[in-house]
Design a protein around this nucleic acid. Sequence first.
DNA 1: AATATAATCAACCGCAAACTT
DNA 2: GAAGTTTGCGGTTGATTATAT
Length: 375
Amino acid sequence: MGRPPCCDKIGVKKGPWTPEEDIILVSYIQEHGPGNWRAVPTNTGLLRCSKSCRLRWTNYLRPGIKRGNFTEHEEKIIIHLQALLGNRWAAIASYLPQRTDNDIKNYWNTHLKKKLKKLQAGLDGDFPNGITNFQQPISKGQWERRLQTDINTAKQALCEALSMEKPSFSHSKCPIEETHPLFSSSPSSSSSPSSSSSSHLSIRSSQASTYASSTENISRLLEGWMRSSPMLQKEKPTAQSELTGLNNNCSSSSERIQSSLSLVCSTPINNNNNNSEIISQEALERLLGFEGGKAMASWKDCSPESSTPDVSQGVSFDENTANYMPENSTSFQTFQEESKPKSEGQGPLILIEKWLMDGQDLMDMSLDDTSTLVF
DNA sequence: AATATAATCAACCGCAAACTT
DNA sequence: GAAGTTTGCGGTTGATTATAT
């Protein structure tokens, strides 16, 4: 038998969230961490369904969310990833960790769609960066050929988009490193959750009057409130600081990549699954961060000499779970939850990332290799 | 100033995959 | 393995705000 329903529809409140509701939700999550949404309405007394609570948290209250206008750089990333992935907003959002999928989706529908339409009309279908077939469905019989073409196109397009603001690619951090959650390790980085707090009080020009959009990120606004609460003082640090702490604990991106690369090479074949290709893909996902905390939990699979995490970097071995964990297990939990894998449809990104990370030319890979990795 | 229209975006809905029992 | 629930995702809606007439 299954579990009881998450919420009955009777007496469930709908519509915009009030500041009071936000405070209740934030303080609850500060205390218990995100997740187990089913229990949230019951435990908080909020007359909202679990779905609504989760949505409110992930889209507006979660620390590290950047609001306001999209930069040209972000715009370009969205355009090119959309061309590559279609409307997989969650996947696209994983490359812009400060933006929510809902935000990106809205921005695409309200701004970028029109922009591109105009641009396309103006250029008579000659889309910049060579993307002329964007959003066209792939015909079944030709998918292999199209895949190669798309990868090539996307590679070129993404490269151009990402290097737009980073002309000296070799001298700067890899753009993915700056945008993907796994790689936004520097606390001083502009894309890190902590740094985004510097702008949390900035007024959003056009929506300042409505509560939901003017609060920016209520969890940060509530920091003072949380600090002054004696009960909560003893509680865990905020998810934001946890993330920052975890990031501090992480080794440098290149070290992580090296570590993960060795994982790819050393991941043993699961006895329960003889398909080594699946294992390889899983390992690749770990390498590229889609598995987030799961990757860390799987470090135990690595051969000790090649990829044991550096304990000095804030990682320790958990005897109970037999996993390598950040020394702050709370951070680990939060990190896991915050960067939960969004596995579906991220194969192409894996390739793109791999290409960006190690310089491997996708086009040098055989079609078979590519299909194995992607599908 | 009043009204109409367009733009924006928070929130809801339905579906499917993942999960639990 | 089946049945039911939960979670996450993408599409859509509708309230609010901005701009044009």
